[in-house]
Design a protein around this nucleic acid. Sequence first.
DNA 1: GTATATGCAAAGGTTTTGCACAGCC
DNA 2: GGCTGTGCAAAACCTTTGCATATAC
Lengths: 133, 133
Amino acid sequence: MTRLREHGLRMTPQRRAIVSEVMRAQGHISPAQMARTIQGEMPGVNASTIYRTLTLLEEVGVLQHSHLESGAEYHKTEEAQHVHLTCSRCGRDDALSLREADKLGSLIHAHHGFVADLTHFAITGLCADCAEP
Amino acid sequence: MTRLREHGLRMTPQRRAIVSEVMRAQGHISPAQMARTIQGEMPGVNASTIYRTLTLLEEVGVLQHSHLESGAEYHKTEEAQHVHLTCSRCGRDDALSLREADKLGSLIHAHHGFVADLTHFAITGLCADCAEP
DNA sequence: GTATATGCAAAGGTTTTGCACAGCC
DNA sequence: GGCTGTGCAAAACCTTTGCATATAC
């Protein structure tokens, strides 16, 4: 909210509604789902406004998107600090702490000088249970 | 080709065209791009046929899809054996060998019992040049 | 008052689906 | 001949865009 003003952006009722919905959200939400939810609570907010605002919130740093198997999803930046481990068999979603992710990042950096952001894309595979048998 | 027959699937001219185009392709192609290319060479092949066939080729194991920043893309299974390192600044695309990827995989496995397939999603970040300054 | 935001309507693009017909085995 | 694959047309989605109007500051 303040973040928006800091960037010289205006506070409209629509933006207030969208931001409050974003704040209430847990975990990841697809833009489309987000649009549906918001319009459910506050009909009359146009879809284009929602998309424009979400884009804006990402530019301002409140939101980030990452890529899961189901497509791109938004999440709050403050909740962004983990790596997704998605089981391609049962769909379970585990997470790697940033500390563990850093370890992986170091390994990559050592060989390529590449500074990886492992939070941006999920990592698929098989969870412990599904890998067993 | 043979793979299709093995699965009790029929060989039609359309499938032959699609498969041959798939075989000719290098690296990654989006489904849409693939559809355009194929229709360029063999007009009269319907888009729905192409989508259906690509799905099929994936089920049969000839193709796989992975997720890059630009969206989902197909590539031949035999060419799937590397991890994408995509620079989010300059767009350059580097690759991690499977051997290096395995090292990362082991690390993940040690902590979570999760068997990662690092080839399925790209890894974004900053390449050596862009990370420098 | 003025620059910015919104609504509206339309288009854009990709992908899916139902159904009748065609064609591979 | 029978089952599978294809074309066609339409719809389903999601998302973007241009423009006139409304409104926050």
